[in-house]
Design a protein around this nucleic acid. Sequence first.
RNA 1: UGGGGGAUCGUCUAAUGGCAGGACGCAAGACUCUGACUCUUGCUAUCAAGGUUCGAAUCCUUGUCCCCCAGCCA
Length: 567
Amino acid sequence: MSTEPPSKNDFIRQIIQEDRRTGKRHGRVQTRFPPEPNGFLHIGHAKSINLNFGLAKDFEGRCFLRFDDTNPATEDELFIRSIQEDVRWLGFDWGVDLRFASDYFDAIYEHAEGLIKAGKAFVDDLTSDQMRELRGVPGVPGKESPHRNRSVEENLDLFRRMKAGEFPDGSRTLRAKIDMASPNFNMRDPVLYRIKRQPHPKTGTKWVIYPMYDYAHALSDAIEKTTHSICTLEFEDHRPLYDWSIDAIPGALGIDPAERPNQYEFARMEVTYLLTSKRKLKELVETKTVAGWDDPRMPTIAGMRRRGVPAAAFRDFCDRTGVAKAAQMVEIELLDHCIREELDRTAPRVMVVTKPLKVTIETIAAGETISLEAPFHPSNPDMGSRKVALSRDLVIEETDFMMDPPKKFFRLGPGREVRLRYGPIIKCERVVTDAGGNVVELVCSHDPSSMPGAGGEPRKVKGVIHWVSREHGIATEVRNYDRLFAVPNPADVEEGEDFKKNLNPNSLEVLPNALAEASLAGSKPGATFQFERLGYYVVDPDTRPDKLVMNRTVGLRDSWAKEQTKD
RNA sequence: UGGGGGAUCGUCUAAUGGCAGGACGCAAGACUCUGACUCUUGCUAUCAAGGUUCGAAUCCUUGUCCCCCAGCCA
């Protein structure tokens, strides 16, 4: 990378530095990435992954991948697999530290009994509606449940019978006994356990009661000996409950007060033109607006991977946007920049004509093939080179010819000259049109002395265009992807309006008749290239032996396009 | 109208009482067998008003605006 990455000194790192300076937890740093396995990971999760695993790396600690699988109603094995794949693909390794909150269900249950014995939790018979009623509203204290003062014995008996499956779903809960008058709703006797007869991906039918997030998450952190528990801003209000859960029974679960975790919150990252709402992404998939969770237009890790975004670009983007507490709405242009910067370094250059226009070089004999040497990268000779075949019969990009070009158009027009990339200068002698007046073929001559290595007088022409020999090229389908949404903030709609009205109708352009140079034959899905003068592309898994399928990751910057919009 | 957070170029971020800096973006130019890359130059900011101080983005006071919270979701 040409520029030095900014040295990271965000507020979380400052806290850790301070903890180490004071010898807190013997300087140990342990984090975790705690996804719920109920959907695909998206770019917002990438930020958290990059932070948590990055911290572990920078401070020589550990980072656990822990699934917070406390709600089997929405969770699925499919997501457990895809999430692991995505984290690994992003370049992070949890080593032996793969965990599930469900690994701790026994310990959490025991802890809950401990809470009851300490008089800090009770079994409630209220329905959720009744509970909401008593919870109160902002500025008004809630009211205590009529069951709040049951005896320890009765609570213990009821809780054990909840576990044994004696009561129907939703009929009873275990609640913490904290403070119904707290201005913080999370502290108004929050529910700790609910009854839910739902097979669990990991524990099957062993449990009919499941712990709630706040409780299970805090205990899981403490059990794993997490040091810095990092989450997003909306959990700031939950921190008192996090602390309460860990501290309610001193010494429980072997937790050393000097080693207990602390929660820190940072701002979520939103990106313009993208959505990170799980619900909305799911809707796009279910309404078949996109082809699936890994549609290249999706802001999911899987989608962007299929789009051809390199993992290194993702990490760079997360680093560059930083970690702070003010809401982030990052411009997608920065992501595009990170992608281009990475791909400029790493992607081999090739020539592909996406919208072919037939060109005949009448000064080359039919059947003659001229082999030209073309480096794979303009500034990195280590990437080597390949031969490209030039012949009489070519295609060029439709947009590289204009019948009546404006002054600043450097490409082909009647009587104009242009250089074929890595090849000779050609001149457009005649234009062939069909009955409808459409340009169907260009007849050109070439200047043999302008051939690379021909030793002729060096001639300069302003325009250089890419091309492919028709007989040597291979059939290719090009999928030009663009932004899925047409507006910077697609989630921002009037009450009652559908966010899908913000979709970009031109987010996918399929070009089935593209022609790629022969060197692309046999390319494997995931391989990235720069199509010269066009953009960065990746081989799609839909590729078949007789047809290459290429997805556009991002276009090259295009100052000609900008010039055109000036008028 | 309760509680919890947050406000620095258009966007993201730095500064930790001592020159408001960087990146993206945008503009102009140079270079170029990619109208790419690269390079040069330029553009624009401390929410407001008071106060403390030799000196304030930073400390204090009072406002303003924005975000989150009333799931048996996470």
